[in-house]
Every structure is written in structure tokens, then in C-alpha cells.
Nucleic acid binder design. Structure first.
Lengths: 236, 236
DNA sequence: CCAAAAGTGTTAGAGATACACCCATGG
DNA sequence: CCATGGGTGTATCTCTAACACTTTTGG
């Protein structure tokens, strides 16, 4: 490695830990932020719940490994994922030294319900504020992931990666309230959301609701790109 | 690993890449933000400049490894360091698969000048806006590290980890201007810095300057803890 | 007395917050 | 006609940004 004295045939002169990726997969359900967990069937921590994860293959990019795990668990491709960081306390896995690179993603929970037992593994969505004890150092990882998620969501228009292409302002507000865990003032929220000029007002409305139908909007990506290039930001 | 079917004696069933830490060590010099680089003497990238780094030992925490590298290079202990994240493109090191966990630190450049050639390695400080081409993917790492540094410095009172215990408001302002790469209005800066109530006005003044001596301040950590607990923040 | 940096307040504008009622629809 | 959520505007306040001159000190 850079700055160290390494010979060509050095491969096993240096330690080679196992490296995994673990994914904090968030979903929204009825105004609750939920997390997808897998119940372990083997030791250590057999029976405990854990973040889905797996080994990084030798020729596989870290992000690709995370996406592979995500897809195996949920069937979802092409969502936004973000790295949380590396976790590597020597004792975090009792079997051997395992360094994990953690990621988070936020997926539409309705479209991807559980898809669990395919692997004979038990999977379930838990509200983030009512989680069971987690295996390994997954509680630490989750806490860091949640901080990262909330920070990112505040500063970048991630909501639109998650919402359907056409959405109501109330859906958008709910998204923020649920992810951030705080309530927002309706009028102020709408004013602000519209003020960036990155939402297109459609000539369509919600259907099938037992009350006045809400107008639909879509995310105007070109406007966002222009705004971003002009040094603009997006925050709620 | 969590969610995967692993047996006890599985050690070499799964890939074991090499894992390193690399450190972006920043220092301030005459209103310039500088970065400590090491000139490589071996292939690959012999002669190129690189971030200091090295292998993570099998029983060593990632942060401990980063601190060890930092201390080897600069002699500095007990400074604030922050993880940037893991970088692991399969091709990033031509010799074998190497995943690196990057960190940044900010040290006092005067107190820790170069200390380089102890290892027969050439080390030097470069202004961050006049860097030579870097080895491996270190340019990527650096760019990410700089973003992380600037974000962190804006939101947390890191300046005081770096400045001497007693400092002038001008020194504080310089710190921010240098790290953030932008100039700040003197009156507004002072007003804001003092508004948090986390600076103690000392009854001492700068000495030995050829102009009016500036008042010294110190960081009042208890006040900061109180403010932080009350949900307060610090931003410039 | 000159050079160099310290120190100090006010104003205007932008953005944030607080707040309550009528409207449209389906059942 | 009722329950449910949709939709709207204003006033206040706080925070930010812009801006220039006098003071102190050492040389």
C-alpha cells in the first residue's frame, strides 16, 4: 500500500481479513419508518435479527456487492444507496476478523413486501423505534446509518427516488415527516417545496379517495440539475 | 456474516482481500490548507505522491490503525480523526485486491513539520489546490475527505481541536477561511462566534506583535456540552 | 508618525415560523 | 350531510449580509 514497503510477491505477508457488506434497508409504511431485518439461523447470534449482508467477492466493487445483497433481499435494482462507512472492531465477529462496509437504501415497502423465505431465512420489517436486539455491532451500524439517512434526506432531493413518479404534496410531506421523525407545518412545507421550482404541477389528480382529490406533481430533474449547477441546494 | 450461511470452519471459503488505512492529513500554513503526502519509492506508482497509509493489523481496530499511521508520519497523538469511508474498486491496486478505509485529520503544521526521512521516505506538505498527481485512487479519496472535512468543520467546533488553547478571534476566523476556502466578514464572524457563548474572554492579550495586541479567548467546553445537550448547534 | 491589525453597530432584506378557515369529494 | 383531507395568505421575528472608521501598538 501507499507509503509502505511492499514487494511484488507480498500477498500473504500482510493480514487479509474477511470483508462483508451490510445493508440498512429502510422502507415507509403508514407513516412509520421501517427497517428490513433477517433472522439468523446459524451461530453466532442464531435466532437474533441482523442487517442483511454478505461477503464481498474478490472481483466485485463494494457498491456492487451492496447492490447485490439489496437485490437478493428485496428484488430492488437501481435505487439510491449510500455508504455509511467501514466497521471493523477486531471482536465484532467471534469467528474471525471481519470488516464490514455498511450501506443504506430506502425502498418502497409496498412494492417489495418481504420476499423472505425464498432463502429459508426469516425476514421482516420492523419500525425503527421498536427494533429487537441486533446481532454483532449492527445496532451501532444502524444508528450511524440513520444519521446518514436523515442528513442526506435533508440536503438532497432523495424523496423522489422513493415516491412514485406522480405524487401529492401530502405524500411528499409525509415522507419527510416519517424519515426525519418530526412533524412539519403544512402551509410552510408546501410553500418551501414549491419555491425551488423543481416540482411540476400536473393536470392530474389523485383518484379513488373519499375526499377531495389532491393534485399530482412530478419531480423536474432538469430544473434540479440547473439549480444544482447554479450552486443551489434543496433543504426541508 | 449476518444473513449468510456460514459454517464455523469457513475461513478460507470466502475471499479475504487486503485491507489498509489511508490518511488525509491536513495542516494549515500561512492561510493555506496543506496536505501531507509521501513519495512512493516502489512500484506501482514509484515516484508518485500518495496519502500515507498502511495495512490494518489482524487484531487492530480500524481507527487504531489510522492513528498509528498518523503518529508514524507526524508524531501526533490524540487529535480528532474522522472516517471518510471505504474505497474498494477491484482494480484500485494492480497487485491484488486491496480495500482501503480512509480517514482525515487536521494537525498543527508548525508543531509537526515533516519528520519524513526517518523511513527513507520523502514526505512533504502540498497546498491542497496545487497537488501533484496522486497514486492509486487517492485523488478520489482526497476529494471525498475534503468534502467531509469541510462539512464537519461547519457543523462542529473542531477548530478548537486544532488551535492553541488560547487564541485570538482573528486566528479563529483564519482557520475557517482557510479550511473552507472562502473569506468571511470580520464583524459578522465575530458576532456569530461569540453568540454561542462557548468562548471565554480571557484577560490576556497577544504578545510580541507590531500592532495592537488582540484579546485571547479559550474554548469553553462545558458550555458547549450544555449547548449541545440542549439541542444547540454550532455553525459558521 | 506610520504601518498593521484590532475592535466595534446599524440597517435592509431574506427566510423561518406561527397560525385557522373554507373547499371538494365520496359514501 | 358528514367525515376526511386539500388547499390557501399574512404578520412577525430571526438571521444573514453588507458595509467603514477609530483605536492601539511597535518600530
Amino acid at each position: 500500500m501507499p507509503g509502505t514497503e511492499i514487494e511484488g510477491r507480498y500477498s500473504y505477508q500482510y493480514p487479509h481479513p474477511a470483508v462483508t457488506v451490510d445493508c440498512a434497508i429502510f422502507g415507509l409504511d403508514e407513516d412509520k419508518l421501517k427497517l428490513l431485518l433477517i433472522q439468523r439461523d446459524l451461530e453466532p447470534f442464531a435466532g437474533s435479527w441482523a442487517l442483511p449482508g454478505g461477503f464481498v467477492r474478490m472481483d466485485e466493487d463494494l457498491e456492487a456487492a451492496a447492490r447485490r445483497e439489496l437485490e437478493e433481499e428485496t428484488g430492488v435494482r437501481k435505487v439510491f444507496i449510500e455508504q455509511v462507512g467501514a466497521f471493523g472492531k477486531p471482536s465484532r465477529d467471534p469467528r474471525e476478523r471481519v470488516i464490514t462496509v455498511a450501506w443504506w437504501a430506502i425502498v418502497n415497502l409496498y412494492e417489495h413486501p418481504v420476499k423472505a423465505d425464498t432463502d429459508a431465512r426469516n425476514a421482516a420489517w420492523f419500525p425503527v423505534d421498536e427494533l429487537p436486539p441486533l446481532a454483532f455491532d449492527h445496532r451501532d451500524i444502524l444508528d450511524t446509518a440513520l444519521g446518514s439517512l436523515r442528513g442526506k434526506v435533508r440536503r438532497e432531493p432523495l424523496a423522489f427516488e422513493f415516491l412514485p413518479r406522480k405524487f401529492t404534496l401530502t405524500q411528499l410531506q409525509r415522507f419527510y415527516e416519517t424519515v426525519l421523525g418530526e412533524t412539519l407545518d403544512k402551509r410552510n412545507f408546501r410553500k418551501k417545496a414549491l419555491s425551488y421550482g423543481i416540482l411540476s404541477e400536473l393536470k392530474e389528480y389523485e383518484i379513488g379517495v373519499a375526499h377531495r382529490a389532491a393534485r399530482l406533481y412530478s419531480f423536474d430533474k432538469p430544473s434540479w440539475n440547473r439549480l444544482r449547477k447554479a450552486g443551489g441546494s434543496f433543504s426541508v
